[in-house]
Design a protein around this nucleic acid. Sequence first.
DNA 1: AACGCTGTCAACCGCCCTCGG
DNA 2: GCCGAGGGCGGTTGACAGCGT
Length: 259
Amino acid sequence: MGRSPCPSGKKDIGIRKGAWTTAEDMILTDYIAAHGEGKWRSISKQTGLKRSGKSCRLRWLNYLRPDIKRGNITRDEEDLIIRLHKLLGNRWSLIAGRLPGRTDNEVKNYWNSYLSKQVIPRDHKDEQNDTVNNTVKNNNKEAKMEDTHQLMMPSPAAPPVPPPFLPLEDPLNLPAAPASPSSMCGEGLLSPDITTGMSDLLEPAAGFSSFDEFGFGQFDLVLEGDWGSLQCIEESYASHYDGSWDCTALNYITDEWIL
DNA sequence: AACGCTGTCAACCGCCCTCGG
DNA sequence: GCCGAGGGCGGTTGACAGCGT
């Protein structure tokens, strides 16, 4: 698999490229076991590996790390990837961070080669479901898509419908929730691509170190159906609100998760 | 058996961010 | 504030495997 070791470099003279050998893996593994991660560029100098620092880092993070989980992506992991991608877009490192033992590269490859072909066509189909004419030829494909689609729909055992997620009460003079996501886009609050736009919109605010901390905290609660705690987080958010976020987007995020 | 097509996935590339001087 | 080095990340490439014809 992977590229053959054909040094193409005019500018990287002396730097090996392509597939890693077992010997190189051992050298890198031994070095990191002894010295720890980091200082990737110095690794090649210290060990004699003719690899760039980036290449060493990539090899370690994507393949050699002892906590890498091998084997097929499970149904639960697939479900989580789909949900997280819906929330975060192509932020593979963040998505992988929620999947212990999985790497961003692995998640990205899995999405590009498998999930994107199921989820995206399905979403597209939903937009024009009145015009689709199923054929016998597509039966198997459709069945597979349906299977994936169910992952994104509330299951019979899904959490109860949460209380309405209304705009927070006003002491902070927060803007009212928009009538629809499209209106948010129209006002420039969210980019047309809602999944990536949200991450750009929700920059760190007081009380939370990052959008990810805030967002994942809510995400976990949604998954668990813990609407009470979710409300507490929202209230906490309201008490810390410093105006750097637009809370209307949070309402939409939660709607997105639930839907 | 040979060939072409397609999917998979390790690895590379280039951009961007952070941090220290 | 500027600059360069180091590192992180998403997008893309390309070798290989498997399958169909």
